[in-house]
Write a protein that binds this DNA or RNA. Structure first.
Lengths: 353, 353
DNA sequence: TATTAACACGAAACCGTTTTCGTAGTTTTT
DNA sequence: AAAAACTACGAAAACGGTTTCGTGTTAATA
């Protein structure tokens, strides 16, 4: 008892360990560990003594040591192409929120659209730092169709959930929205309001979501006996500026409705047609994917397709954590699911019925 | 050599460890460890053998074990109030980018404006998971002025960098923008273009940034011999909707220029005055803090104050990592700095000279 | 009173590394 | 030929926990 607790007096700046407590209280480390866990093995007095001491010195177990011992980290790795992006941030918020509620932390790496960064980041994290991944694939990865890094991860037994733009080549849990269906609905809605010359402004076709959206667009037209005019489909490349939209709309002045796969294109397109003196939505109506701030505050406000990123993130996190926590209990056959989030159309001024 | 490598054949799904290599190659763990580090201690043959084997089986050291041993994690903890928020995401992007380039990963926790979450998250991470913190304080924390969690962290010797809204009560590195000066400049700019009745639309005064901005606003007016009209200052609370802006502008119809501390307020205010038939910027001009998508795509586009979140994040990360990596080398006296980022005014249609 | 069971605790292994130190065996020096 | 110096490696401690198993002491049972 009368030992000199050097470590405690002068320098507070060190976390106290089990060993410290054991030394001060002249018991063994195992006793301290058990006492703090309220183990039945330890006597009342000792437990109280240890617990009081621990509280006094604000003992908190070292996460790293626990991770090493227990083989899990309670960290999940999130790889996304971009963080300054409404949809991805909402997905991330969903992930973080759910994960946090389950006692998990999220380690985020931004791939910045680069395949290499995606690979490097995943490799970094796969070496023990995380218990599982939620990944939004980068455009470059989708373009290259090189999924070996994903395969390696799953082969190591690390659970993986893919969201948004996915690939069939990897067997894992996935969560997507009903892109085709919602695009179909959006186009149908425009048709029902009397529009006939409906354009689609899209981006990289390697994004599976864009492929699906285009399918929905096409199907809606043909289902309504409108033949698809390929000239009415614009595919923007990352290097394109908005100028392309300009010429696209000028060349095809018959267009009376536009579906875009993102907000910015829609906003820009709206400003282009307004300059031409066209009325929105009377002369031309707009629907854009992603229900962000822009849609809400644009003039006129933009009818948009809410992708419910929060929900997507939450579900991705739930699926992942379920897999993580299932891992321990027996090797039942792995079953992978693909959850589909129902997107919804948020009606605003840029369309009317 | 002819041992049966059970672990390797049937079940690939486990990361290989030093011990595994040692067993297979019939050398000691220390030899393997050293060989992989290309230590001079180990003979050529052995090194080659070990390295070849390691490459073959794709050996990667376990991060957790290294962290435990070396007392650093190469993780930095980022605590922010909100992630679906342009400014914070840009700051985060700056942090992540710099950290990543230095081999660090970022663990993000969203406090969601809640003091409790901020505290809990920091406590979670402070137990060995991270080497340092970058924190954007939540509004609740600033309101309560309770900074014990920050104090505890710094007392434990964990480096901390605060950004944006800071407090004087904690001694640590900080990075802010020149809020007062840029607000001064913005208001001055409006005065120079002939405006006399300049309003300020702000939010919680507990945000030090808002305090500074208001000071700049006041100083600019008085320096130009315009007396401050307290009625021209509107302070929005989180629970307020945009309606308040409506009545504010209606009541004070003399207002011919508005500075807002965020985009949304400016955008909304612009739509209000446009409905009244006022011309922007002739009848009333606008400048808003935060140079996000809204400013760029609004009609008319909004002159805005770019806070350079990326730069802020990068500098915060740099300061933090410097502190982290300094920790080891001798206990020189701690010197804390406050870096000031120069905000800039991005001129658009909502103002004119 | 001898036997057994319950209680309260400690020793030690383990997680996967790093790193210090010790030491056979060989080579160089004197 | 003896001493000194390398060379190439292994044993073991350490990081901070968890957990299994063993054991001395006491209390209950026969």
């Amino acid at each position: 008892m009368a030992l000199i607790p050097i470590k405690f007096n002068d320098f507070v700046r060190r976390k106290i360990t089990l060993k410290d407590i054991a030394r001060e209280l002249e018991v063994s480390i195992s006793t301290v560990s058990k006492a703090l866990k309220n183990s039945e093995e330890i006597g009342r007095d000792t437990k109280e003594k240890v617990q009081a001491f621990a509280k006094l010195y604000n003992y908190k177990p070292n996460n790293i040591a626990i991770s090493l011992k227990n083989k899990y980290t309670r960290n999940i790795g999130v790889i996304i192409p971009d963080i300054v992006h409404h949809f991805f941030t909402t997905v991330f918020r969903g992930i973080e929120k759910y994960a946090n509620s389950k006692g998990y932390n999220t380690i985020v790496c931004v791939s910045d659209g680069s395949f290499d960064k995606e690979v490097i980041n995943m490799e970094m994290l796969a070496n023990g730092s995380i218990d599982g991944f939620v990944v939004g694939l980068s455009s470059e990865t989708l373009l290259k169709r090189d999924y070996n890094h994903l395969r390696e991860v799953t082969e190591q037994g690390i659970p993986l959930v893919l969201f948004d733009s996915i690939t069939d080549e990897i067997q894992c849990d996935k969560v997507v929205i009903n892109d085709e269906e919602i695009a179909y609905k959006a186009v149908t809605k425009m048709i029902n309001s009397g529009k006939k010359n409906i354009a689609l402004v899209s981006t990289g076709y390697f994004y599976t979501v864009n492929k699906n959206r285009e399918n929905g667009y096409r199907r809606a037209l043909t289902d309504n006996s409108i033949s698809v005019n390929e000239n009415f489909i614009l595919r923007l490349l990352p290097e394109d500026n908005n100028e392309k939209i300009n010429t696209f709309l000028t060349k095809n002045s018959q267009i009376d409705a536009v579906l875009t796969v993102n907000e910015v294109a829609a906003i820009h397109a709206m400003s282009v047609v307004r300059e031409k003196g066209m009325k929105i939505p009377e002369d031309i109506s707009f629907i854009g994917f992603t229900d962000g701030l822009l849609s809400r505050y644009a003039e006129p406000s933009l009818t948009s397709i809410a992708q419910h990123g929060d929900q997507m993130g939450e579900i991705a996190a739930r699926m992942l954590i379920e897999k993580i926590e299932m891992e321990n209990e027996g090797d039942q056959e792995e079953i992978f699911q693909t959850e589909i989030i129902e997107a919804t159309i948020v009606e605003r001024e840029s369309t009317k019925n």
